[in-house]
């Protein structure tokens, strides 16, 4: 079985701060991590590899430093890694990104047919959830997003059955390989690789690909290939006032009483809801 997992290196959003003076993002010391959602997909891919054998290739498009995320993915158990990096890719939006990644997946497919592509549900920086569907559409693969569970895979009939989260319930879908899957967060938890995985991650040479390796149409990547334009980036306006503090002498019960009085007098409509 040949599985490709698309991962993206992102800044750890929990650690991003806005510079208090200049109002710009302070990246200093902000660690880059594998997009957390991608790990659920990677783990699922590794489980399929455990069951059916074969290869798990991790693929990322990004700057050279994204190598770290590929090595990390290998330390969990991925067998191969491709780093798609080129200045020409800079500024790609999701449409252009899915084009470039699809080009790379096609090349991998030529080397050994790809049965499944996994993407993360979404990224924590772009947060668009578009690249996966973009790849599926371009590759003409079945698109299975928000998968909570892979119920069954049959390599002979090339059928796959999954549970897909939808609004208000779970769809059980029967589909066919090749398919593009995005896993729901919490659907599994990442394993701790073995010492052998660590050695492989440290030693395996990466495949370093650029636009000439696999991309046919240069006009479809980078800024040129991106229909969307970021016209403004700004810091959310802080609420003008801070919370009004409820103060009362006499401990918790006095504070509670004061709070309730405040709610009832300030928001008379709310009172009805509260003591229905």
């Amino acid at each position: 079985m040949h599985i490709v997992v698309c991962i993206k290196q992102v800044p750890d959003s929990a650690q991003i701060r806005i510079h208090p003076v200049t109002n710009t993002i302070m990246r200093q010391g902000v660690p880059a991590i594998i997009n957390p959602y991608d790990l659920f997909s990677l783990e699922e891919a590794l489980r399929l590899k455990d069951r059916f054998g074969g290869r798990v290739t991790v693929l990322t498009m990004g700057p050279p430093m994204a190598e770290a995320s590929l090595r990390k993915a290998m330390s969990f158990g991925a067998t191969d890694a491709v780093l798609l990096t080129d200045r020409k890719f800079a500024g790609s939006d999701t449409l252009a990104t899915s084009y470039a990644l699809t080009s790379a997946i096609r090349k991998l497919h030529e080397e050994e047919p790809v049965d499944l592509v996994f993407c993360g549900k979404q990224t924590i920086d772009g947060d668009t959830a578009q690249v996966g569907p973009g790849i599926a559409t371009r590759m003409n693969m079945q698109q299975l997003t928000y998968v909570a569970k892979i119920e069954d895979v049959n390599l002979d009939s090339r059928e796959i059955t999954v549970q897909r989260r939808s609004e208000g319930g779970v769809q059980v879908l029967k589909s066919r390989l090749p398919a593009m899957i995005t896993m729901l967060e919490g659907s599994n938890s990442m394993r701790f690789g073995t010492m052998d995985d660590m050695f492989r991650a440290a030693r395996t040479p990466l495949k370093l690909w650029n636009k000439d390796t696999c991309v046919d149409d240069e006009a479809k990547v980078g800024l040129k290939g991106s229909p969307t334009v970021v016209s403004k980036v700004f810091v959310p306006k802080p609420r003008a006032e801070k919370a009004k503090m409820i103060e009362a002498e006499g401990g918790a019960s006095a504070q509670a009483a004061a709070a309730i009085d405040m709610l009832f007098t300030t928001y008379p409509k709310l009172a009805n809801d509260l003591v229905r």
């Binding site: 959003s13 229909p227 970021v230 980036v233 959310p236």
Partner: peptide
Amino acid sequence: RPTFGGTLLCTIQTLA
């Protein structure tokens, strides 16, 4: 839309 987990907002347009 929010980006970087809500630390920043960005405005995006599809012009052409």
